[in-house]
Amino acid sequence: MNSDTSTGGEAPVIDTHGLRRVFGKTVAVDGLDLTVKRGEVFGLVGPDGAGKTTVLRLLAAIMKPSAGSAIVAGHDTVQDAEAIKERIGYMAQIFSLYRDLSVQENINFFADVYGVTGEARQQRIERLLTFARLTGFRERRAGRLSGGMQKKLGLACTLIHEPDILYLDEPTTGVDPVSRREFWDILTSLHTQGVTIVVTTPYMDEAERCSRVGLMYRGRLIECDTPERIRGRIPGQVLEFLPGDRHRARTILHHVPGVSEVQSFGELLHVFVEDLASGEAAIYKALGEAGISISAMRPIEPRMEEAFISLIRRQEETGK
């Protein structure tokens, strides 16, 4: 699965073998083999309940695997959990700082906990607060911050010990678009500083910003590659149009030769065809015979979103 050719001989920062975690009868993570190299921004995407959060928790050494092993920063997550914790930063999906403590008190607490003392301490706190654009809110209780500010404070607290590896569990969910962009700018600058980042996200535009993306589905990693290559997995090309009767059009198009896949995007349909010209003609012919109108027909550049839906659909079909 790892078709990268850029491996420079350096040991991976994260390396898992057959990692598995079971909750009762539910298999949350099923035989995960994953390697992440130093300095990568690795995006973990997939539908809700795919097991992304569990993977992060296993990699953060705060949850024990049911089977398999994970080596993070050269340490085993079960044997050497505490050694790993010194090197990583982890931000949970829900806001997990103290709401009744102020911005400054929260960051002080984590500085104390990670043993950040002396001159470095004040400098680092100042830098992080500036970085997170929170200098004007020092005295504000964390519970009174906006969603975006809370996430940035969480990130600042997570970075107080300058971790080598950063795990972020849906850091931009519930955050306004402007803060979302700001947050990713921060991540990009961390990336340039050499921090390895593993981030889960439901947003495909964010997945595009990762250096490598893993698609999780029902506890399994079904695809793992760079965004370009994943986009390249789409067979043929994609036509977008607005049909008069979307549901009927979908059913009809499934049986049109040359059409490999049909996806709905709101009122629009995305149709995967082998060839643009002949595909378009086939669509007009099939829907014309059924009396369904077509408007705004245009070829589109396949995005991660189309690619993932396509990959998941194929997985579902082979799963049956």
Partner: peptide, 14 residues
């Protein structure tokens, strides 16, 4: 309950 324990557990606090 508030989820803050998760953030504590991930630190080197024993």
């Amino acid at each position: 309950e508030l989820g803050t324990m998760e953030q504590i557990i991930v630190t080197p606090i024993r």
